[in-house]
Amino acid sequence: MEGKNIFRTKFDVASIVLIPACIGINYIGKLFASALKLPLWLDSIGTCLGACLGGPIIGGICGAANNLIYGLTTGDSITLIYALTSLFIGFFVGIMARAGFMKSFPKSLLTALVAGGVAIVISTPLNIVFWGGQTGNVWGDAVFAASQAASLPLWLSSLFDEIIVDVPDKIITLILTFIILKALPDKLTALYDADDEVERLD
């Protein structure tokens, strides 16, 4: 796949059906994490899987559609604002995957750092504009309070808050994505191979 156009995307029925499945997976990840009382969100596993299978464009769509749909229907309208973050996470994870950075465990950690970085860069300004810099996560907000108390600039406190919340989450999320990708059969991954052509046997 490498060497070809990284952004090439199939918009066939198979890719369209992939999107709701990924959005569902995001939801299930979040549900499991809270059922098992894990201190993480784990609500972007589906977006990352969508990005790895369908490429950056499908990844971006999965991310954005995820937040828009939940925001508009489950009453969690705060999620809407972070559609932008999800979109870019999906997009960049897709690029990393197409560039071969989901092929081995160490490489996937690098993808995790990119995803974490993207989350920080996009979410921090959103946090500042909408919530005055907080994330709503207890641990992150404690750090926020402490650095505000130490008279650090708002953006820096907010950045710390975001790092505490998002980086561990993205690392675990991409490790899980990596494990799940490994378990997926060839039959399935072949379906999203954008460069496949029919070969003639006669």
């Binding site: 198979a14 990840g29 596993i45 899987l49 378990a183 379906l191």
Partner: peptide, 13 residues
């Protein structure tokens, strides 16, 4: 989580 994720992805086919 792996079985539910895998089978839902496989079901997409």
């Amino acid at each position: 989580i792996t079985p539910v994720v895998t089978s839902s992805l496989i079901n997409t086919r």
